[in-house]
């Protein structure tokens, strides 16, 4: 689990679920916290892609809507 860096907590939405997290949590730390592993995932914040190279520098803000996706079996709709 992630070390607490700040007392202040914020509420963000991750894949449609509300979560309370510390205010300066980075995307990298969020993925660690959630146990998301593997390189074949992608993250969007408020409809914008966060490139993998920004995971450690991008920090979450109050009300952020985070989507974490991966590839699954599928053909068409």
């Amino acid at each position: 689990m992630c070390a607490v860096k700040s007392e202040r907590k914020i509420t963000v939405s991750v894949n449609g679920e509300e979560r309370r997290v510390v205010s300066d949590l980075s995307v990298e730390e969020l993925l660690d916290l959630l146990g998301v592993k593997g390189s074949s995932v992608a993250v969007a914040r408020n409809q914008a892609i966060i490139p993998r190279s920004d995971y450690s520098s991008a920090t979450l803000e109050e009300g952020d809507q985070i989507e974490i996706i991966h590839a699954v079996g599928g053909g068409a709709s």
Partner: peptide, 9 residues
């Protein structure tokens, strides 16, 4: 083809 879906938390 593969589909793109939310990871199960």
């Amino acid at each position: 083809t593969v589909a793109i879906r939310r990871i199960s938390l």
